[in-house]
């Protein structure tokens, strides 16, 4: 399947990917300013730039073939779509037990405690039906969306 890959050598640590991830998962998908200023609580970025300068790269869910998070999930909220391979968390079923976070070998799932406690993770912008927002907006082509 197509996944997002980071090219560490070209990641400039600007975190524009995080900004656009937030926007893509807000109610204002075409308006960054509103997504940040109007939506409360503001969505969490599902991609996180890890850095130890000069090294930096953006990390998000790897959508593992044999995803440990789906096995660990106690409610069945975390599922891997058999067709697309995308691993998503169905937030209405998620109870915020954080077992998935324990199971994830990449640390790609984070806690969202802004309202109902839910696990927050990359969904490859499946809703948008195009290249994930982080990849589309990376200013230095340090993120690519491809089959490997």
């Amino acid at each position: 399947m197509k996944r997002v890959y980071a090219k560490e050598e070209y990641c400039v640590g600007c975190r524009v990917c995080e900004v656009h991830c937030i926007v893509a998962h807000s109610d204002y998908k075409n308006d960054i300013v509103k997504a940040f200023k109007k939506q409360n609580p503001r969505p969490l970025p599902r991609i996180l730039v890890e850095e130890n300068r000069p090294i930096s790269f953006a990390l998000q869910c790897r959508h593992c073939e044999d995803a440990p998070c789906t096995k660990a999930c106690i409610t069945g909220a975390m599922q891997k779509d058999p067709e697309t391979g995308v691993v998503t968390n169905e937030e209405s079923r998620c109870v915020g037990c954080w077992t998935c976070i324990l199971a994830c070998p990449y640390g790609a799932i984070s806690r969202n405690e802004q309202g109902k406690k839910v696990a927050s993770k990359c969904d490859l912008c499946s809703d948008l039906g195009y290249t994930p927002a982080c990849v589309k907006n990376c200013p230095n082509n340090a993120l690519v969306f491809e089959e490997r």
Binding site: E9, Y10, C11, V12, G13, R53, P54, N140, N141
Partner: peptide, 18 residues
């Protein structure tokens, strides 16, 4: 812009593919 520098934080801003 990662051009006239040797600072590794800055040089990576110029992706040679681009």
């Amino acid at each position: 812009w990662g051009i006239a520098t040797q600072d590794p934080n800055l040089t990576k801003r110029l992706n040679p593919e681009i």
